[in-house]
Amino acid sequence: MAVATAVTPPSREAGPQHRGTGERKPVKRRRERQGRFAFWLLLPAFITVFGVIVYPMLRTLLISMFEVKSAVATVTPFVGLDNYVQALTSGGFWEAMGRTLYFTLVSTGLELVLGLAIAWLLNAEFRGRWLIRALVVLPWALPTIVNAAMWKGIYNAQYGALNGLLSGLGIIDEYQAWLSDPFTALNFLIVADAWKTTPLVAFFLLAGLTSIPNELYEAAKMDRAGRIRTFFSVTVPLLAPSIALVLVLRTVEAVKVFDIVYAMTRGGPANGTQTISYYTYVTAFSEQNYGLGSAISYLIVIVILALSALYLRLLRRSEMSLL
C-alpha cells in the first residue's frame, strides 16, 4: 500500500496526456527511481519488523520442536511435537490458562464498564473538561512496572493505603494481607491492571462518542426516548465499532499479561497469580526448558489468533466495518 501511494501521485502529475509520447522514457525512469527511493525508505522498517518479529517467531517455532535445556546447549535432540504434547497434557498449563482466562474476562469486562462510564462523563459539556480529560489519561502514562510497585504499596499488609482507608472508615477491624490468598491476590491484580488500562478504553470510546452526530440524539428526544433508551438504542449501536476494537486490543493484551504479575506477586502465592505468560517465562528461563517454553508460546499465539479471528468475524457479521 505504502509503495503504491508513494509512487502514484507524482506519476499523475507528470502524466503522459499533457506531454508528447516522446517523453515517456524519462517518466518511466523517474518512476523506477522513485520506486527505488521508496524501497530504501521502507528498508529500515522492514529490517526492524523482520528482526524483532519474523525472525524470532520462526526461531521460536524451530526451538519448540527440539529439546533445549540450556541457552548454550551444543546438543539439542529433535523431538517433533513432543513439547506441544507435554504442554497440553500438563496440569500446570491448563491451570495457568484458566487463570489467564479469568483475568482476561474480568479485567476486560471491568475496563469496558468503567471506560464507558468515564467516556460518557467526559463527553458531557462542563467547565474544565479539558483538564479532567488530561488527568484521566495519567494512569495510562505510567509504566506498568511503576504501576505495579505503587499498587504493591497500596495493598501492603502493614502500611498499605488500602488498609489505612478501610480501617479508617471502620470497614475492617485489623489490617489484611490482601495478596496472601491465591484467588484474592488474582482479583487484586485485576484491579491494579484495570486502574491503569481503563483510561485507554475510555479514550477509545470517547473518540467514538464524539463522532455520533447530535441530530440523532435530537431525533431520539423528539421520539420521547428516555436517557436509558437513548443510550441503548443510539449510543451503543453506533459505538459498537469502537467497543469491538477496544475489546480486541484489551483481550489480546490481557492474555499476554506478564509484567504486573512479575512485579507484584511473581506468580504467588501458591501459583494463584501465575498466568500463562508467567508460566511460560518460568518454564523457559527459571527451569531452562527452552523447547517446552517455546511450544507454550506458540500455543498462546494460537489462542490469541483464534480470539482475534472470532472478533473480526463477529464484526463483519454485524455489518460494522472496522478498517
Binding site: A73, T74, V75, T76
Partner: peptide, 12 residues
Amino acid sequence: AIALTGCSVTGV
C-alpha cells in the same frame, strides 16, 4: 528441522 537433528538450535 530433521536435517538439524544432532546439531544445536541454540546457535552455539
